[in-house]
Nucleic acid binder design. Structure first.
Length: 264
DNA sequence: AAGTATGCCAACCGCAGCGAT
DNA sequence: TATCGCTGCGGTTGGCATACT
């Protein structure tokens, strides 16, 4: 099964782009805008597949692209964001103006990985660095309704926290909501309530905390810009596996959320 | 100078999400 | 509801450049 590669069509060029192709592509997009990648090559007079055109534009020709010389600040941000987000290169790139996901991915694989591996012992920001990348999970179904425990839970004596942070991947839940919805509108209007019901999501406080599966909690954080947004800006951060103290988990989630906010 | 090894990065591949029908 | 097609993402690869022997 599976679709055949789009570049497998006879007659389409592959490999490095010539300056002529670059200018054809750039000129076309300047005049007609991005999008319609499938039909773009033909209209622009290029013997390339749409995918290839998109990649070339996104990673090379797009205005405002910075090339090379990743600063220490950027590097630090990449490391910290990777600690929180994992290999979500497009999200990480979204926080680094002018950088592309491809560049950050390459930089991580060729510079940072090595650097951090040699920089002594295990690094807390680097979960399973040596681990083989996992295949994408199938789309997660919304969990059955499980509203957050009430405040009384927090009153109980809190044993030492036994929380375990699974870093990352953040879980996308954007499909349950319209992109035009904001968190506020969700919390206050009936559409929002309906959507929240569908997702078993009950925003009782900020940051909103979810029970994803029994005993697993997540927090929604604003991320801003891009297609991975939740409520036009967010997704569930690392899931905590709770043991027996809800309140300690909530505290931990708030801590994680605060740390995340500092990065933004 | 020539051959080989290593590093780097642009580009490709395959898959999943999602809207349209 | 199911299927199709387009788009975007993350992992991987191929080839050029540079370093090393």
């Amino acid at each position: 099964m599976g679709r055949s590669p789009c570049c497998s069509k006879v007659g389409l060029r592959r490999g490095p782009w010539s300056t002529k192709e670059d200018s054809l592509l750039a000129n076309y997009i300047q005049q007609n805008g991005e999008g319609q990648w499938r039909s773009l090559p033909k209209k622009a007079g290029l013997l390339r597949c749409g995918k290839s055109c998109r990649l070339r534009w996104m990673n090379y020709l797009r205005p405002g692209i910075k090339r090379g010389n990743i600063s220490e600040d950027e590097e630090d941000l990449i490391v910290r964001l990777h600690g929180l987000l994992g290999n979500r290169w497009s999200l990480i790139a979204g926080r680094l103006p002018g950088r592309t996901d491809n560049e950050i991915k390459n930089y991580w694989n060729t510079h940072l990985l090595k650097k951090l591996k040699t920089a002594a012992a295990p690094h807390k920001d680097l979960p399973n660095l040596a681990a083989k990348p996992k295949k994408k999970k199938p789309k997660q179904k919304p969990t059955p309704p499980s509203p957050l425990k009430d405040e009384s839970a927090a009153d109980e004596p809190t044993p030492p926290p036994k929380t375990k942070v699974y870093l990352p991947k953040p879980i996308r839940v954007s499909s349950a909501f319209s992109r035009s919805n904001s968190y506020d509108s969700l919390a206050s209007n009936s559409d929002g309530e309906k959507a929240a019901e569908e997702l078993s999501y009950v925003p009782l406080q900020w940051p909103p905390i979810f029970e994803l599966e029994e005993g697993d909690y997540g927090v929604c954080a604003a991320v801003g810009g891009g297609s991975d947004d939740f409520l036009d800006g967010g997704f569930i951060l690392p899931v905590l596996n709770h043991s027996d103290s809800i309140s300690s988990d909530v505290n931990m989630l708030e801590k994680v959320y605060d740390e995340y906010l500092q990065l933004l």
